[in-house]
């Protein structure tokens, strides 16, 4: 465990708390893509299936439980509690275009052709692109509530912080995980446009608005 990794994980935790806070205080899930949230549940369940057969640490155990539980809770909030505030007509990204390629890629590029290993690889590829329905929705509406942009910034920061973490581990532990690194770079890259607007507008006190 190094500082980058820890800050990354904390940023990930923060993003989830921000999202739940946004939904509960505004009593609305407006501006949040249900599809992206559903993809995250898929990602966590597929990856953390190893809770059943691999013990790493107490930290690791509780984080995994938290990510699965909180993502399911968010789906519940969106699907039942605040259902009327979700507008499916602007959340129209075709998730099969993400799930399909993630399945195919994980069957081809993996470390070992074993069921749980392929599930892990699938979850890595799927996570890399899971934010796309959310970003697509943002692009479509052209604006976002400030709190929603904080959620996305924390989520992007989590991924960005994993990169120095890998560099650090390369030098100190002599390990490289090409699958995680390539997928992680792609995932972080997807946030670049968003970060640009976030830093130049939201952090300057302006509303998040995309040029027409």
């Amino acid at each position: 465990m190094n500082l980058f990794r820890l800050l990354g994980d904390l940023s990930h935790l923060a993003s989830i708390f921000i999202l739940i806070h946004k939904i509960q205080t505004t009593r609305s899930c407006r501006g949040i893509s249900f599809q992206t949230q559903a993809l995250y549940v898929t990602v966590f369940v597929a990856r953390y299936i190893d809770l059943f057969f691999r013990w790493i640490s107490l930290y690791n155990f509780f984080m995994k439980i938290f990510f699965i539980a909180s993502s399911v809770y968010i789906l519940y909030l969106m699907k039942y509690r605040y259902r009327p505030t979700h507008d499916p007509s602007i959340d129209t990204f075709k998730v099969e275009y993400l799930v399909g390629p993630a399945v195919v890629l994980s069957l081809i590029f993996n470390y070992k052709f074993e069921f749980t290993e392929i599930l892990w690889t699938f979850s890595i590829y799927l996570e890399a692109v899971a934010i796309l329905p959310q970003l697509f929705m943002l692009q479509r509406t052209g604006e976002a509530e400030t709190i929603t942009t904080h959620y996305l910034a924390a989520l992007g920061a989590y991924r960005a912080l994993y990169i120095p973490n890998w560099i650090y581990r390369y030098f100190t532990e002599d390990v490289v995980d090409p699958i995680a690194i390539v997928a992680g770079l792609v995932q972080t890259g997807l946030y670049l446009d968003f970060f640009y607007v976030y830093f130049t507008k939201v952090l300057q006190g302006q509303k998040f608005e995309l040029p027409a």
Binding site: R54, I56, N60, F67, Y162, N165, R169, Y170, D177, A180
Partner: peptide, 10 residues
């Protein structure tokens, strides 16, 4: 470096 998956990450 060992090309090993770092499965201790989240």
């Amino acid at each position: 470096p060992r090309r090993s998956p770092v499965k201790d990450e989240l």
